[in-house]
Computed example of a mutant assay.
Amino acid sequence: MTIRRIAALLLMLLVAIPAEAKRKVIIDDEGFGLMHMMLLADPDVEVLGITTVSGNVWVNRATAQALRGLEIVGRRDVPVVPGATYPLVNTEAATERWEALYGKLTWKGAWMKAWAEPTVQSTPPYHRPDDPVDLPWGNPTTKPAGEIAANFLIRMVRRYPGEVTIIEGGPMTNLALAQRLDPAFAGLARELVYMGGSLNPQRVRDDRSARDFAREFVNTPRREFNIRFDPEAASIVSRSPWRAITVVPVDPSTATQLTRALRDRLAAAATPEVARFVARMEPGFPMWDEIAAAVWLDPGVVTARERLYVDYDTMFGPNYGDLLSWHAAYRPGLGEQPADVVRAIDSARMEALIEREVARLGR
Rank of each mutant, 00 (worst) to 15 (best):
P140F: 13
R155E: 03
T173R: 07
G169Q: 08
G162C: 07
M172K: 13
P140A: 08
M156E: 12
A176D: 09
P161D: 11
K143S: 14
P144T: 04
E168G: 13
L175C: 06
E168L: 14
A178V: 11
A149F: 04
L177A: 09
A149Y: 06
R158Y: 04
I167F: 09
E168Y: 02
V164H: 02
G169S: 09
E147Q: 14
V164R: 03
K143I: 04
N139L: 08
G162Q: 06
A150V: 10
Y160R: 02
P171C: 05
I167D: 06
T173A: 06
V164Y: 02
A149V: 12
L177H: 10
I167M: 13
N174C: 10
P140H: 11
R155Q: 07
P161N: 11
A178G: 09
A178N: 09
E147R: 09
T142L: 04
R159K: 15
E147M: 14
G169F: 01
R158V: 00
A145W: 06
L153Y: 01
I154P: 04
A145H: 11
A176W: 07
A149H: 10
K143W: 02
A176L: 11
L177D: 05
E168S: 15
P140K: 06
G146F: 01
L175I: 08
V164D: 03
G146D: 14
A150D: 14
G169N: 08
E168K: 05
M156W: 00
P144L: 07
G170K: 01
G170H: 09
N174S: 10
M172C: 05
T142P: 02
V157I: 13
P171I: 03
G146N: 14
T165F: 00
F152G: 00
I148R: 15
N174Y: 07
G146W: 01
E168V: 03
R158H: 15
E147V: 12
E147I: 11
G138K: 12
A150E: 15
N174R: 08
I167W: 06
T173Q: 12
T165N: 11
Y160E: 11
L177S: 04
A149C: 13
I148P: 02
L153F: 01
M172Q: 14
A145I: 00
T141P: 02
E147L: 08
R155K: 14
N139V: 11
L175S: 07
P171K: 06
P140Y: 12
R158K: 15
A176H: 10
P144Y: 04
T141Q: 15
K143N: 08
R155H: 05
N151F: 00
G162Y: 01
Y160V: 02
I154V: 15
P144E: 08
